[in-house]
């Protein structure tokens, strides 16, 4: 037999084994390495669902048969049965896109999210589409908080209807979550957002993340963002936010309907890799991020030691 051919076969055999090992062992290895003190937290997320309560119709189009809130319900229930610590978030644009919204103004979307057990959401530009009075009515039906730190609603009917951040404790791990919205001017009709004031998301994001990390002693900080993933123009996006801030660990994004196969890591001002994720639109995908935490001395996810304060 040809030596080269033999080597090649051996190599392919090795590759095949490696692929199998790689796909099944990380959890086992992780459990051994991490020991009993490890706490797992599963983050589930959607963005830009756009009133897509039913799956896309079976009309031969690209997304035919995908999505649907009743299937999402099954997926989420299954994951909740398997995992003790689950958090479910939405990154905005819950409303607009199917006749459900035109007819019912957002009620079934919000009530379905209550049933799915969403822990928090933020506001997208299209959530203003029914007008700001309709936001009060519909978000008033939500059993989850709307987190938005950079909209000042003081002179509007939405005043006091949102909160900037919320703390969650899961298996002892403290997780701080806050929301950031996009610039309404030039995007949302003025008649819809009225006197809502837009505040700089970088400045606010940095302040809130520091507050969550230091004052509120959060082990993990998540930003629900409707800024958009990335732009060629020099305007703020999740990529810019990640690079120009500190203390944010994960950005769950929306607005640009970006289908990321996996989260993108962007180094922040401290050189720490911030994860940015976004899962398309219309509830075609459910994003899942599994986090493992150990008690005690902090080591960053890249293995670099970090000072414990």
């Amino acid at each position: 037999m040809d030596v080269l051919a033999s080597n090649r076969r051996q190599f392919l055999k090795f590759l095949g084994t490696a692929a199998v090992v790689g796909s099944v062992t990380p959890d086992v290895l992780a459990a051994v390495q991490q020991g009993p003190k490890t706490t797992s937290v599963t983050i589930l997320h959607t963005n830009d669902v756009h009133s897509r309560l039913d799956p896309f119709p079976m009309d031969g189009s690209r997304n035919a048969g995908k999505g649907g809130v009743a299937r999402r319900a099954t997926l989420i229930q299954t994951i909740r049965q398997e995992q003790a610590n689950v958090l479910l978030f939405d990154a905005g644009d819950i409303f607009q896109g199917t006749p459900y919204f035109n007819l019912y103004k957002g009620e079934p979307e919000i009530l379905a999210m209550n049933r799915l057990g969403y822990d928090a959401g933020t506001l997208g530009n299209h959530d203003f589409d029914g007008g700001i009075d309709n936001m009060v009515t519909q978000f008033g039906k939500a059993s989850f908080p709307i987190l938005i730190a950079n909209y000042d609603f003081k002179n509007t009917v939405m005043d006091g209807r949102t909160i900037p951040f919320k703390l969650f404790e899961k298996g002892g791990v403290r997780i701080g979550v806050f929301g950031l919205g996009i610039q309404p001017e030039g995007l949302i009709p003025r008649a819809a957002y009225k006197e809502t004031k837009y505040l700089d998301p970088i400045e606010i994001g940095n302040d809130i993340a520091a507050k969550l990390r230091i004052d509120k002693k959060c082990d993990y900080v998540i930003c629900l963002s409707h800024l958009g993933f990335k732009y060629t123009e020099p305007i703020v996006s999740d990529n810019v936010l990640a690079a120009k801030t500190r203390n944010i660990d994960l950005i769950i994004g929306g607005h640009t309907h970006t289908f990321l196969d996996a989260p993108v890591a962007v180094n922040n001002l401290d050189g720490q890799p911030v994860w940015i994720n976004q899962v398309g639109f219309a509830g075609i995908n459910l994003g899942r991020i599994d986090l493992a935490f150990d008690k005690g001395k902090a080591v960053s996810s890249t293995g670099k030691s970090v000072e414990v304060k």
Partner: peptide
Amino acid sequence: NPGYHLTNRTSNRIGVDSLTATTD
């Protein structure tokens, strides 16, 4: 009160269709 630190993170994009989930 050192709290917790992240030791591992993994991700998965779950397609929502008839193959991945039945209708609730």
